[in-house]
């Protein structure tokens, strides 16, 4: 479904060039729930931004369902973002001028298809994430966790095939985290969505089928859950992370 090959990305700051992604390759199957972990600054957000073509990559290839994204025209790319991708940003990127509900509906509005069905779905998502009571509030008036849940609901409104989530549970208590993970699992089982989630949280990651660990701009290790228990998988994750810390 999602195939990244030998991706390179560097940032230019003044005269200095910082290479952040140094040849990342990975493969995510349709309907797979994958987590990306790695130390802060290892390039996780950069990777997600490159995958959705928000920032241009220096080299390498990104294929989504067989199409090379770099080859798409602007309008086609916009269409892909709107219909097929759901993106949860690390810093939420909610519009300050719109209410929580309006923010959630925004991708549907941009796509030009706001039916009663979509509105129902928005209400449903609000219920699931426990933000129904604050639907009419503006982003400036809600908490960080509420913003995060709003951002997740917005990513899900168009029933995307691929969800790219940058730390969707970073600000949440365990109950809210479970709700987010739960909806991702639902999207996976109900719609066959593919989920690609960046997280620092081994608890959230332990729900995934596979965890990719990034370090110094390359894939350091991939852990597969297979048929392991969730807690056992979490322990394996923690062991890997502490191993990485020791090196």
């Amino acid at each position: 479904m999602l195939k990244v090959e030998n991706l390179h990305k560097s940032y230019q700051v003044g005269k200095n060039t910082y290479e952040v992604l140094k040849g990342v390759s990975l493969n995510v199957e349709q309907g797979e729930f994958v987590a990306v972990m790695g130390p802060s600054g290892s390039g996780k957000t950069t990777l997600l931004n490159c995958i959705s073509c928000y920032i241009p990559a220096d080299s390498g290839s990104i294929r989504l369902g067989g199409t090379e994204l770099a080859r798409l025209g602007e309008d086609e790319l916009a269409e892909v973002r709107n219909r097929k991708l759901g993106f949860v940003f690390q810093d939420f990127l909610l519009l300050d001028g719109l209410t929580v509900e309006q923010n959630i509906l925004l991708p549907a509005i941009i796509g030009g298809s706001v039916s009663a069905d979509v509105e129902n779905r928005a209400s449903q998502l609000c219920e699931v994430f426990g933000i129904a009571a604050i639907k009419g509030k503006y982003p400036a008036e809600i908490s960080g966790g509420e913003k995060q849940r709003t951002a997740v609901a917005r990513a899900l409104i168009n029933n995307p095939l691929v969800i790219l989530a940058d730390e969707p549970t970073g600000n949440l208590d365990s109950k809210s985290s479970r709700a987010v993970i739960g909806t991702f699992e639902q999207a996976k089982s109900g719609l066959g969505s593919t989920i690609f989630m960046v997280t620092h949280d081994s608890f959230a990651a332990s729900f995934c089928d596979r965890v990719i660990i990034l370090r110094d701009g390359v894939v350091w290790r991939t852990l597969e859950k297979r048929d392991a228990e969730r807690t056992a998988f979490q322990d394996a994750l923690l062991a890997s992370i502490s191993e990485m810390g020791r090196q």
Binding site: A78, V80, R81, N82, F89, L94, G97, L106, I110
Partner: peptide
């Protein structure tokens, strides 16, 4: 620019 950028990130086309 923030608004416009978010529109585009959510799949609004540049032309739109």
């Amino acid at each position: 620019s923030r608004e416009l950028g978010i529109f585009m990130a959510l799949g609004a086309s540049r032309a739109q």
